[in-house]
Design a binder for these strands. Structure first.
Lengths: 248, 248
DNA sequence: CGATTGCCTTGATCAGGATCAAATGAAAGG
DNA sequence: CCTTTCATTTGATCCTGATCAAGGCAATCG
């Protein structure tokens, strides 16, 4: 029986473009058994809320399948996505009981949960877990800072191109990128969610998507099905360095 | 003899508005001695560069005094600040040798450094240090996400008000905030640095600063000396929830 | 002392996205 | 089949903040 969240070690998926965020990549003795017995699963439908900002959250979890988003909302309704949780990403902060953001299932979602109290106790006695969690958190911090550059300084077109290239990489892997073949994938976000991710309005997202289509940078056969004929040409629109230094 | 970075435990400075980020708040035996013998100090003048993005960085450090900033720059020169390091903040990522950002001394700066290799070794054998570092990193991640909301969704005026209220809190503490008296502090940033922090141009920063002054929300006797007569009125301009849930 | 330099302010104009409004299209339901 | 709903597109207009261009002011230096 598989312990999803715990078995994914980075070295197990060398090609994967996403930084895997297994809770514990290195422990395989009693700690794993302890985690195994405290875990449980929860499923959510697309659009369903997982926790509200301000709620008590007495579990930590990692995403098994599907996508969840973290969003912040201002009183007047302005919204900003601040995190996008992909499979194997971790959510919940040891030591903090109140959720600081809304967590929402963007697609159908399965999470592997651990009650916070025993998880924290285990962390205190198992150095590997704390270290792995630190690594993961540092990766997330780097991603957040990349995102800050996007929000603060990129144009609408660059923002869209950046998001699409992130999703393309995630779905297809760096190998495919190197291969320079066309890349196809499903957009897991609505126009509005994309707008919340990018700090734009949904109208601007729509217009810029169609602009990229007009310019032949992407093909949009079905509104939510994207094909990128030439990844490098898309990258040129992102404003990022050509190498796209994504992983360390 | 003081081990600056290590002696600051959160509970030692209850009033301080800034989340202290001591490397090790809880260890006080052999680990402290080990850290003590591997530490060394480096000083920088205002404006001086500490590391360039892409450089090899074979130390980790914590800020003793002064302010440093982390910035990202695009090829065409657009710049975004992604971190502001205040005293007791930590910089440098265990496990990563290449600096992902430019680190610059914004004011005169003293840092307490540890060579990376021995620091990492110590981390591996001292669970408290990894746990403390995890806490600090999670705090930083929360700050980054707050910052993302600012960059993505706030107006120029709200951005300025937010920055000023952060600085005001830092310099004076929550107690003073509660006391509702006027708050004075020195701006440690130029208009351009503020702009890079906020995702604006320096002209817009200048205009909005003067607008806040005209509206009586701040007083600017000397361009870099700020007085906030009524903190709550400034907070109302930030767009944040009134409570200003700053710490946990 | 005048010249230079760095930082800040101010003004005029422009443009990228936001906003408001309406239409389209596809899927779901009665 | 018609209606409803939701996601998306498209159009017209507006406005915030960017851009371009000068000018002020204080500190520093020759």
């Amino acid at each position: 029986m598989s312990l999803h969240a715990l078995k994914l070690a980075p070295q197990d998926c060398g090609d994967c473009p996403i930084r895997h965020r297994a809770v514990c990549a290195r422990c395989d003795g009693p700690e794993l058994a302890k985690l195994e017995e405290m875990k449980y699963y929860r499923s959510f439908e697309a659009g369903q809320n997982v926790v509200w900002s301000g709620d008590r959250m007495d579990f930590v979890a990692s995403v098994v399948s599907g996508i969840a988003s973290l969003t912040q909302t201002m009183e007047d309704g302005r919204r900003q996505m601040v995190g996008l949780l992909l499979p194997s990403d971790f959510v919940g902060r040891p030591g903090r009981t109140i959720a600081p953001y809304d967590v929402t299932a963007t697609t159908d979602l399965v999470m592997c949960c651990f009650r916070r109290k025993p998880f924290e106790e285990m962390m205190a006695t198992t150095p590997h877990v704390a270290q792995r969690l630190l690594e993961m958190t540092l990766d997330e911090l780097d991603a957040a800072r990349e995102w800050m550059l996007l929000l603060g300084r990129k144009t609408a077109r660059e923002k869209i191109a950046s998001l699409l290239s992130i999703l393309a990489r995630r779905d297809v892997g760096l190998k495919a990128k190197a291969a320079k073949g066309p890349i196809s994938f499903d957009l897991p976000l609505t126009r509005e969610e994309m707008a919340d991710y990018l700090g734009l309005t949904l109208e601007t997202v729509s217009r810029q998507m169609n602009a990229l289509k007009r310019d032949g940078l992407v093909e949009l056969e079905e509104k939510r099905r994207i094909t990128v004929p030439n990844f490098d040409r898309l990258m040129n629109e992102t404003g990022d360095d050509s190498d796209g230094g994504f992983l360390s």
